[in-house]
Each structure stands twice: as C-alpha cells, then as structure tokens.
Nucleic acid binder design. Structure first.
Length: 661
RNA sequence: GCCGCCUUAGCUCAGUCGGUAGAGCGAGUCACUCGUAAUGACUAGGUCGUCAGUUCGAUUCUGACAGGCGGCUCCA
C-alpha cells in the first residue's frame, strides 16, 4: 500500500500530511470530537470518505452552519426511521434541514397526533442509542428505482434528478445533481436497519445527535404545490448540546412572550371582535394613541419630504379596477362586488387607481414632476381564511401609500430618495438592521404584464439603486407585482426575526395608454407618459404596529407609549400634589395618569410595571415637603428627591428625542 | 382555501365516564392610608362558541357553521 499526500486545513494553516492509501477522513480528525464531516476541495463529505492523493481536507464542526445542517438532516433520517418503525405503511416524502431544525414529510392514512410524537421521540432516542452507522452507497437510477419501488415519492424524485429547478424546495437534499446515493443505517451487526435515498453527507453514527426535540406536526402539500396531495410533516429541532437546545426552546418562549396578539390584549391596545369578522381589528384607546402618534409623525415627515396629502374613498365602481388591471390579475384577492343600484362596486384593495385619477384630473406639466401623492389609504383584501394572523395579516388595513409620478429620467433619483426616506423613518421607530429584497418577474408570462424590454429597464433601475445603498440585497425571482418589479426593505427586530416592511415598486404599466393613459406636457410641448413609483413605508399601519409591539415587547419608547407617566401617590393625601405635577406635564402634552385606586403603592408600581409605562413619578410626605418626586423608570432604576421641574424636563427630553428608556 | 387541533366567567385554566359547573387573577363594594413588583374581607359575573341531530335529559356524544391556534398554499 503506497502513501498519498493530503493537506489538512486548520484555521490559518495548511498542514501537509502523508498518509497511507485507504485512509479515511475521520482518521485526520480523531482528536477533535466536534468534527462530524469533512470538506474536501469545497465539497462536503462523510467522515468515512476515503482520502485521495492531493485532497485538501477541512474538518466540519458540528456547530458550524454546515455542521448544523448535517446534524439536523441526520436527525430527520432518525425521525423517518422511527416513523416507519411505528407506522410501517408510512411513505417517505422529503426531510431537509431548515433554520433551527428539520422536518420530514410522510404519507400516512391518519394524521399524527401529539401522543404519536411522544412515541416517535422515544423510538428516535432508542435508534440514537443503538449508535447506527450512516453508510453511503452509490447506486444507479435503475437500481434505485427497483430498490425503492415501495416509496412512490422517492421514485418521483429520482425521475426529477438533474431537473433540480423543478424539484421541491428541500428535495435537493435527497437527490442533488450528482451521482445518486442511498444511505444505509447499519446496526452493530452491520445489518441494514433502515435506508433512505439521500445525497448526504451525514453524521458518522446516530449517537452523534446530542440533543433534539420534535416540535409539532402539520400538513404540507407534496412538493409545495396545493394541487398535490397533502402529506403529514413532522417538525423537529436539533442542537450540538442540551444547553443549546434549551436556549432555543427559551428563545421560542421569549418570542411567545412578545407575541403582539397577547400583548395587544394585556396592554389593552386592540382586539378582533368576532362580530366584526376575521382579520378586522379594532383599536382601543391605548392602541389608538400609538396608532395616532405613528400616523401624525409619518404624515408630517411625508409633507416635509415633498409629498402632498390626499384622500380617496373606500369603494369604487368595478370598472376602475379593470382599467388598473387589478381585477383580472388580482381578482380573488378582492372582496366580491356590492350591487349599488344595479352597478357593481368594489371595496378597494389598493389606492393607486384613485391616485392615478387625481393625477389625471387636469393636464400636468413636466414642471410639476415629481408629483408625489400620499395618504393613509384604507384597503380591504379578501385574504384566505387560513392566513389571517393578528395584526400582521388582516383583511382591512391602512396603507401609508404614496405614488410618485416622474419622468423615466427622474426615476432612479426618486427611488433612491424614497429608499433613504423609508430607512430614516424606520430608524426613527427604532429599527436599525435592514436588508433589501429585489422581487422580479419570472417566466410565468400570464402573471405579469408589459414588454420584456420595459421589465428589464425597470429591474435594472431598481437594482442599481439597491446596490447604491450598500445594504445586503437578496433576489426574489417571481415575487414582483403584475405591473412591475419591486424592492422591499426587510427589517430585523430585537430578537433577530425579519419582517417585510416597506415596498417600492416601479410601474410603467398603469400609466400606459391601455390603462390610465397618464400624460404630462414636456418642455418641448409633446405629451409624454410618466412612470409611477408606488411606495409604502410601513406597508400597513396595523402590521407595523404589530411588528413594533413585538420588537419592543410592549415596552414602547416614551414618545409612542400610550401612558407616558404614571403618577403613584403613596397615600390618598398625596393625590392632589401629584395632580399638580400632572398638570405641569400635561401643559407639555405629556400623557399622564394618576393611580388613585385604594391599592397599596407597591401594587400600583407593579401595575404600572406590567403596563410597561416608561416613567413613574411617586410622591409621599417627604416628596411633598421637598417639592419633589421619586422618579422611577420601568427597568427599576429610580432617583429620589427629583424636583418637579427636573422630572418634567426628563420626560419631555425623552419624548422629544424619541429615545428608548 | 387545504390538513390537524382547539372554543367552559373579562383573562388563564380545572371539571362533568350524559343529570345545566369551579379556582386563581381581574372587576365591584367595604375596611385599611401604607415608601418601591401583588393588604384583607365580602359580592357579582357563565342559556359551557352558534345551530341542528341522537337522547327522558346534551356543556359533555354526532354533524354543520363561526372564530381561534399550528403548519401548507398565498401575501399585488
């Protein structure tokens, strides 16, 4: 047996090494228990990979991004084996790793119930304990088809191999594009305990799954198409250690604690009365304060940025939405027609057609451009019943919607202007972490209108502007509106979740002669067609309020807080004194309430704390005598003996500067 | 829209193997007037989501509908 040379890549070092032919990758990393796979010349391999002369080999640690995927995908195999053990009739779908975990789809007669998950988890632990070896075996299409003839979904995937573009998301983990492989799970006697079509790589053995948990089961369409059969999907999570699993579960709890639907009730912000209908929120007085503050601020900023505030009705004759193209392309998203004296009216699902009519209401000159129209437009969308979610997906909402009418030459500057404006607004509301998404047309021509050339121009304009911001840019093919491409701003919240906020869309279709036939008179006296740029800064006021609630976990910055100052008298005789302090604050527009219930002051502090009021001013005998208050922040910090004037100043300062406390 | 689960007091939840229900918090009343996250006592509050069916009898079993939750699909 001859020697071969390999290079082991360790951080900042290339370590040349001579090994005998037939050496497996694991032998290079036997001292490092964290290494669960190898990257050879850029490709991920099992640790059982047999080294070849000249290979450059790097260990893949379990906690690296690739390592986590391998761990999770391997855990998905353990899940599938356990399911087929307990439910022999279950047919396998796909089982890829996903963010924080994995899933596996099964075709079973009866959906899984929570008790099933408990049993499956137990079976999985047994498989892990058995320390089965993941063993890779190269096969051919023909052999695999024969071997897996009882797995109809796998057979379908083999047929798709090579057409990765057509396969479902996640299917790449099964077949990939290269050679077809099957992974056998071998028990201690080297008998095949279970096998699955899979590209790999995998952990060396099942025992290398340190910590996992099954989360839930749900139905999912085969290959993500609602025309296909629904399979039963089991979601799980897996981590390099028990501690990391616990931290993950803790983060989920934290997210639940921030859930705006719960906080909306606890803080008395809004509700969804059944009598009104699904997805139709009402704002209570406290939610109304936040909503009003948001709207006032956003309206003022728009006007400062050169927008003109307009107003339009909630319904219109149906023909308007045929002119705009919304009914043919977006009809099922709109509420059914209302018959008004024999004429069909529709609740509007968007504001642009009405803004177009304002533009068209008289002849426009190039000197007026860019013409920027803005309003909080109430729109109604017939969202499918299963998608409605708190304030983030509703059926009736207000868009902070604007349309800029520009010459094609002005479009890039206007878009950049809008993008910078959007970002500065979001920052004012405490969101600082963004990336952009560019949604473009795909080749489903029936979903989009306009010429290839116009689409190309529009897409280029948006893309250039995106690049100019220097922000991370993620492509989203097929995500465009039917009338043009869009860029959306995705904001990450306090616990790292990203939300689609603002959208900016380039539209050369609605102004066209076949649609609204918008025109302006150019410098040379000719009539030209403007481009319109749609933009919504928050997307929807409702949704943004929901996102902010979760971002702040209900502890809004003082300028947005429904109650900014809670006055807490230590005994009843201090009420009047606090009312004097309150009067001083109210002179400056501060929202202040005095708790004059007969609760004890400890209870009053607790209540203010639970309501997440930013400031508490507490007064007892000592404070009255000194003409001062005890000034408490909601995080528990407190300064005693603060003179009234200074307390007022502190509150005003925080509110005016829109700082968080 | 699809699949599954759920719906009992304002909230969170017990409970009734078919004989119309309880707790804690909250609310109201009273007492207490208190120095940094829950003072005490008492009281009120529920056609058990809605409508049908089975039954002597349904909150409990069955069905439909509405609403919610978790996913899938969708999100102009």
């Amino acid at each position: 047996m001859s020697d071969i040379k390999v290079v082991v890549l360790v951080p900042d070092e290339r370590r040349e090494s001579t090994v005998t032919e037939g050496t497996k990758a694991w032998e290079l990393f036997r001292d490092d228990a964290d290494v669960i796979a190898a990257r050879v010349g850029g490709d991920l391999k099992d640790l059982s990979y047999e080294l070849a002369d000249g290979d450059e080999v790097e260990g893949v640690a379990i906690s690296s991004p690739d390592g986590l995927d391998i761990l999770r995908h391997s855990t998905a195999h353990v899940l599938a084996q356990a399911v087929q053990q307990l439910f022999p009739a279950a047919k396998l779908g796909i089982g890829p790793p996903i963010a924080n975990g994995f899933y596996y789809d099964f075709d079973v007669e009866t959906p899984f119930v929570p008790e099933d998950l408990v049993k499956i988890e137990t079976a999985m632990r047994k498989i892990i304990k058995e320390n089965q070896r993941f063993s890779r075996r190269v096969t051919t299409d023909a052999d695999a088809l024969e071997e897996l003839k009882d797995e109809p979904y796998k057979v379908e995937l083999i047929g798709l191999k090579g057409n990765a573009g057509e396969a479902a998301e996640g299917a790449g983990a099964e077949v990939g594009a290269g050679e077809l492989t099957i992974y056998d799970n071998l028990n201690r006697n080297n008998e095949v305990a279970w096998k699955d079509l899979c590209r790999g790589p995998h952990l060396p053995t099942t025992k290398r799954v340190p910590a996992f948990k099954l989360m839930r089961s749900a139905a999912a369409y085969w290959r993500g198409d609602e025309k296909n059969k629904q399979l039963q999907r089991i979601y799980g999570t897996a981590w390099p250690s028990k501690e990391e699993l616990d931290e993950h579960l803790h983060r989920i709890e934290e997210a639940e604690r921030r859930d705006h639907r719960r906080l909306g009730r606890d803080l008395d912000l809004f509700s969804f009365p059944d009598e009104i209908g699904s997805g139709l929120p009402v704002f209570h007085p406290k939610g109304g304060v936040i909503k009003r503050e948001m709207e006032d601020y956003v309206r003022r900023r728009h006007i400062e940025e050169g927008f003109e505030y307009v107003g339009t009705p909630h319904i219109a004759k149906e023909g308007l939405f045929y002119t705009s193209g919304h009914l043919p392309y977006y009809g099922e998203g709109m509420f059914p027609a209302l018959d008004v004296d024999g004429m069909d009216y529709r609740l509007k699902a968007m504001n642009c057609p009405m803004h177009n009519l304002i533009f068209r209401s008289r002849q426009r000159s190039y000197r007026e451009l860019p013409l920027r129209l803005f309003e909080f437009g109430s729109v109604y969308r017939h969202e499918k019943s299963g998608v409605i979610h708190g304030l983030t997906r509703v059926r009736g909402f207000a868009q902070d919607d604007s349309h800029s009418y520009v010459t094609p030459e002005q479009a890039p500057d206007e878009i950049l202007h809008l993008l910078n404006f959007v970002l500065s607004l979001l920052r004012d509301f405490g969101l600082n972490d963004f990336y952009l998404e560019l949604s473009t047309r795909d080749d489903r021509k029936d979903k989009f209108i306009g010429s290839d050339e116009d689409w190309a121009i529009a897409t280029k304009v948006l893309e250039d502007v995106c690049v100019e911001t220097g922000l991370e840019l993620v492509p989203d093919p097929g995500g465009a509106a039917y009338y043009g491409p869009k860029v959306s701003v995705q904001a990450r919240d306090a616990i790292g979740r990203s939300w689609q906020m603002s959208t900016i869309q380039y539209d050369f279709n609605q102004p066209s002669a076949e649609r609204f036939n918008l025109e302006f008179v150019a410098a040379d006296g000719s009539r030209q067609q403007p481009v319109m740029i749609h933009s919504a800064k928050f997307g929807s006021i409702e949704r943004f309020l929901g996102v902010l609630t979760e971002h702040y976990a209900g502890a809004f910055p003082p300028w947005l807080a429904p109650v900014q100052v809670q006055g807490i008298p230590i005994a009843e005789r201090h009420n009047d004194y606090l009312y004097e302090v309150a009067a001083e604050l109210k002179k400056h527009g501060i929202r202040v309430e005095i708790d004059e219930s007969d609760d004890r002051m400890q209870k009053k502090i607790r209540n203010a704390q639970l309501q997440k009021v930013p400031f508490m001013v507490i007064a007892g005998d000592a404070d009255v005598e000194a003409g001062a208050v005890s000034f408490r922040y909601r995080d528990g910090r407190q300064d005693n003996g603060v003179p009234i004037a200074e307390a007022v100043e502190r509150v005003i300062e925080a509110v005016t500067n829109r700082v968080q406390v």
